[in-house]
Structures are given as C-alpha cells and as structure tokens.
Amino acid sequence: MKPAGVDVIVPCYNYGRYLRRCVASVLRETRIPIRVLIIDDASSDGSAAQAREIAAEDDRVEVVAHRVNQGHIATFNEGLGWVRADYLLLLSADDLVAPGALARAVGLMESHPDVAFVHGRAIRFSHEDELDPLPESADADGAAILRGVDFIGDLCARPVNPVETATVVVRSSIQKRIGGYRPHLLHTGDLEMWLRCAAHGSVGVIGAVQGYVRLHANNMRDRYKGPADYQQRYEAFVDFFDHNSAVVADAPQLKRRVLRALARQMVGDASNALDNGRRYAWMIARAREIWPGVRWTRSYWRLALKGIVALLLARGRWKGAPKPADTGPTP
C-alpha cells in the first residue's frame, strides 16, 4: 500500500527572493512522499525563472507560470485542483515549514481518520539569521483532538483567526468535498475555510512548532486593517453560517454568539481609539449594525459617557482642562 503523502501548493507573486528557502523547507521532509507545485502569478521579479531552476533540481517540484495575474484566491483554487495526495498544505512563498511538521501532521491524521485538518504552533520572524538553521521540534511535544463544533464555538466566542496557514495540513478528501476558497473573502478566506473544514470533521492541534511565518513590508495581511478587517471577518462568519447551517449543530445560536462578540470587540477597540485620540464613531455605528443589542451593554454606555466627556473637553466646557485630540462624533 502506498504511504500517505502531502501535496504542497506554493503560490508566489513577487516573492522570488524567498522561494528557494520556502521550497527547501518542504523538500527536507523524506519520511513521507512529497510533491510541490509552485504557481507563479505573473510576477515581475523573476520568480518564474527561479521556480523553474528549483524544479530542474528536484523532480518532486512542478511549476505553473501565469501569463496574466489572476489574484491569490484564483491561484489557491487552481492549486487545490492539482492535488492528488491524501493530504495537502497551502504554503505562501515567503513562509517556511518546520522540520518534521508534515510527518507529524500525517501521523496524527492517519491515527485519527475523523480529523479534517491539523494545525500547530507558528514562529514569526523577520530575518533569515533568526532561523539559521531551522530549529528542530521534538515529536513528543504532544497533540490534541478538538471536536469540530467546539473549534467553531471557540472562534465564534473570540472571532479572530488563531490558525496560521503555514501550519495547516488538510485531508484532501475533505477539501474536495467542501470546495475551494470564496472569491469575495480576500482577507479572511482562510478563516472561513477552517470553519468549513471543522463543520465536516475534528481538528488536530499539534503542540510542536509546525511553521515559520515571515514578517516583512509586503505582507498581504497588513493590507486589511480597521474597517476592512472587521468587515471581512463579519463576511467570513456570515458566509459560513449561510452555507453550512445544515451541518453545524446549534448554528443559529453560534451565529448570534459571533455577532455579539464582534460588536463587543468593536466597542472595546472604539474605547481604545478614544483614549488615544483617534476617531472611533465608525466602529460604534458598525457595532450597532452587526448586533443592535450592543447599545444595552455596560461597555457601550461607559464608552458613551467617555465620549460625552471628551466632547465637552474639546469644546472647552470644562475651563482649564487640557483639550484632547479630535476624536470624532460621540456614539
């Protein structure tokens, strides 16, 4: 019987300077079968030529080079269509796989056929010398299996993405059943994907370091902040529940939970913005749209009182008091 392997998709757009180290971190794994597909999305920095050089050196590597840029979601989905192995990893060309990570993930999922995907610890770094050589992570660091509904419930209670894509190995049969990434979720497609996978199986959590995430000036995650980040997270959860309620226990209650949590989070961020002299009214307005009941929470009324005081100070109603920076209209 052929041993279970991992197909690794490496989308690349102008990350040629990182590509060789990224692919090398994958090919280091020799205990299980590995295939790599580099998809260059019409880079202008010579990434395609770099990819072809890497493929010429190792027959486990294949290359697709787009003549016209298709965007990251279309590129991800193209890669998913290429997969033949039992398991898959989508790895950005600027990130790295930790030594032993793929074998650990496969071992866990082979032992637990109900697990839809596995993720683990990630280390963030900025410079190559921080990881030279890549630290080894002991196989005995432990693992846990979380019911899919519990994973979904945890994300609904705290609606931020706790999973680094560089650490995620997905069972290919689950991926093919649930389909690809949503085209409109440019920033939170991975968050919605983890929710969708968890709706169809358990989640494995590995205690070892499974990936290394590079921080640099062109990180895609930095393009979505403030209103765009909140909107994308809101759309990810709404899209998930709109399409998967039939297979998620207590879906209506979980959807209400996440909308409440998002609204409360926005009120908390609005309070911090007010304290630091930044505009915050948009957060209050959006929080009320997401969950109208937020206006009856203590945090909302504390913020409203702070806003009134700030407005009075700004207008000089309290003589002798220092004037804060412009904070925008009160909630």
Rank of each mutant, 00 (worst) to 15 (best):
K225H: 14
R158A: 03
S299M: 12
V170R: 15
N14E: 14
F76K: 08
I308N: 11
L259Q: 14
H184C: 04
A48E: 14
A85I: 02
L312Y: 05
D269K: 09
G79H: 09
R177C: 08
T297Y: 11
I34Q: 02
L19Q: 09
V10A: 13
G46N: 09
S137P: 01
L312P: 02
V168P: 06
R21G: 04
L185K: 06
A48N: 11
A198M: 01
E78G: 12
L155F: 03
L254I: 00
E53F: 10
A101L: 00
G153C: 05
D154P: 03
R28W: 01
A261H: 04
N77I: 08
G180W: 05
F125Y: 15
A138S: 09
G120S: 03
Q70G: 10
K176Y: 02
I308S: 13
R121D: 01
R21E: 07
P292E: 10
K255E: 14
V10C: 13
A51K: 13
L90Y: 12
L80N: 11
K306A: 15
I206D: 01
V267T: 12
Q50E: 15
R60G: 08
V168Q: 07
T167K: 03
V203M: 02
H72Q: 14
P183N: 05
T30S: 10
D129A: 11
H184L: 06
W296D: 13
E130H: 02
A42I: 11
R278C: 11
D141T: 00
E78D: 12
I39R: 14
R298M: 11
A98H: 02
H112T: 02
A49M: 10
P99Y: 03
A249C: 08
A199Q: 04
I178M: 00
Q210H: 03
S25V: 08
W301V: 08
D129C: 07
K306I: 05
P292L: 11
A56H: 10
R298H: 10
K225E: 13
G153E: 09
G46I: 13
A56S: 14
R196L: 03
V247S: 02
V267K: 11
T167Y: 01
L96V: 03
N69S: 15
G204F: 00
I9A: 07
A24Y: 03
L131W: 07
A304V: 12
D95S: 06
R121L: 02
A4W: 04
D139K: 02
T30N: 07
Y181Q: 12
Q70I: 08
P331V: 12
T75E: 05
R17Y: 05
E29P: 01
Y224W: 15
A98N: 03
P99T: 04
I54T: 08
V209S: 01
Y300F: 15
V118Y: 06
A140K: 04
R278Y: 13
A249R: 10
A325D: 08
Q210M: 15
R214E: 13
D154C: 05
L27T: 04
E110W: 01
Y224V: 10
W301P: 08
E235V: 03
P113R: 07
V8W: 07
L134M: 02
H187Q: 13
K255C: 09
Y230N: 11
G277A: 06
A199F: 00
A249L: 10
D250Y: 06
R260H: 09
Y15R: 14
T75N: 11
A4D: 04
L37T: 12
Y300M: 12
R21I: 04
L108N: 03
W194I: 07
A310V: 07
I123M: 02
V83N: 01
N218H: 15
